[in-house]
Design a protein around this nucleic acid. Sequence first.
DNA 1: TTCAAATTCAAGAAAAATATTGAATATTTG
DNA 2: CAAATATTCAATATTTTTCTTGAATTTGAA
Lengths: 204, 204
Amino acid sequence: MKDNRTFKDEAYGAMARFVKALANPTRLEMIDLLRNGEKSVEEIARATATTVANASQHLQILKKLNLVRSRKAGTYVYYSLAGTEVQSLWQLLLKLAYAHVPELHRLMHNKRKSLPHLDERPDPDRFFLLDLRPEAEFHHHHLPGAHNIPFDQLRERLAEIPRDKPIVAYCRGPFCTWADKAVRILRKQGYEAYRLIQDEGFEG
Amino acid sequence: MKDNRTFKDEAYGAMARFVKALANPTRLEMIDLLRNGEKSVEEIARATATTVANASQHLQILKKLNLVRSRKAGTYVYYSLAGTEVQSLWQLLLKLAYAHVPELHRLMHNKRKSLPHLDERPDPDRFFLLDLRPEAEFHHHHLPGAHNIPFDQLRERLAEIPRDKPIVAYCRGPFCTWADKAVRILRKQGYEAYRLIQDEGFEG
DNA sequence: TTCAAATTCAAGAAAAATATTGAATATTTG
DNA sequence: CAAATATTCAATATTTTTCTTGAATTTGAA
């Protein structure tokens, strides 16, 4: 009878240890970030607004649970998602959080309201599909037919954006703000611009 | 630029708040338990080996995130899962934990090794399918063709179990130990008995 | 070999989650 | 209305998680 409890404690404890690895805002952001391809510790730290030492610790927690992998190259260590099922897990958690946490629902709804957007992937022939992520992420993976102008180069490269089609902008994920800002900038310049909503569960 | 970070902190924070509700062994056990139907606070506390006050607090955390519902009846409060997607979520987390936490894998593998078991749901005509859960849980839901003998009545009710068929026992979930014990008891009595493995991701 | 840069390590401080305890509340029953 | 029971509340102690800091390690380059 005592064994009974020991077994349950170990089993539910092991399960909780796994879920705990995901139960932190910084680590969730890291997973979201790494969906766009591998990154060095320093890049990850910068993107998640934390110190390198702190980022390293978080990454090791994710690594211990086989959620991320690391690859050493020179003095750099590059982290990436351990498998495609980690992507799916992240998306599922996002969808469920959206359904269960009213503040998140509200937050996304407000963002949505203040910005023209498209819910479906547009036909690349009728729209100019604009990817605002850094070049490396664009090369890692991008929507078919998309054109890459990293956000920090947008103002200098407006000439590359056609004026005879509506523009549809996207970036890293639902919480990435580059596309929002780009839409505002482009509209000020007279473009017909929309943000693309990519992830499931966000129909408001 | 500062807004940028505020938005991300709120978004990932909200997501983490949801995941945190699941990141605790006791709360995971509660969800697993409630998959078998509604229960009062006292029952839940007893089953998870904690105090009533503590159980109440955990249940309120689950309730705040809409993972469970409560219903008041007299001086009792009955908790139940908020929807079928909570079941699915639990099963998915179990499956992923099993794949990512080696100790959990080992734990289940050892348990499996020491006990004759079946991985697939047996034909109720050729097997005697034995459900060892309390009567109320059996009524809430059970496998088609199953016969209910609550574990604590097993020894007194052996006469109800046929000797001309192999017995396949199951109970609450993969971490429930009644079926294991029942298989051992039945084998000692000369029955050909197996434990049914119900949940996904446990093929060792 | 020495220096510089990227990462990790290790220790302690700070913050958050969890458990415990005893009291408060609400409901039924006598 | 008073007593009994189930649950929740509230305060505090305990434990765990997270962040910070500075040093140690590893690798490449001068």
